[in-house]
């Protein structure tokens, strides 16, 4: 089965990003396909490469980056939600005249159309939120 996943809460404050990660790992292990994960609302904060959690805690961003590298999962960060919250890739930083960018490897910034397209093209859509 093809499964699309949405993460709609921020890391560490909410468990959504962890639960989604565990779900995707389990779904892939069971032979399902997860072509894309879409990060929305505060979920976009998962994609910053500048978070530095204590060393004895899981690193949520690194977990997702590793998953994308292993399985080619398309990790899409909503551009409108990201810009509100200070998440920029190099192109957007340049375009907006900002002096830094912070999107981690494995994530890409794109539009909400990617969420709708995912919902159309998958058999199930699973949202992880509050």
């Amino acid at each position: 089965m093809k499964i699309g996943v949405v993460v709609s809460e921020g890391p560490y404050t909410h468990q959504a990003a962890d639960s989604a990660y565990n779900f995707v790992r389990a779904a892939l292990a069971a032979g399902h396909e997860v072509p894309r994960v879409f990060f929305y609302h505060d979920g976009v904060n998962v994609s910053t490469r500048l978070s530095v959690p204590p060393q004895d805690e899981r690193n949520i961003q690194e977990n997702w980056t590793a998953l994308a590298a292993e399985h080619g999962t398309d990790l899409v960060v909503c551009i409108a939600a990201a810009q509100r919250r200070g998440l920029l890739d190099a192109n957007e930083a340049k375009r907006q005249g900002k002096d830094a960018d912070n999107i981690a490897e494995g994530f890409r910034i794109s539009g909400l159309g990617q969420l709708i397209e995912m919902a159309i093209q998958t058999d199930r859509l699973v949202m992880f939120g509050d």
Binding site: Y40, A80, G111, L112, G113, L115, I116, I120
Partner: peptide, 11 residues
Amino acid sequence: EVVLIGAAFDQ
């Protein structure tokens, strides 16, 4: 915002 973008997909 999702509804408005989604409207373009003829669903």
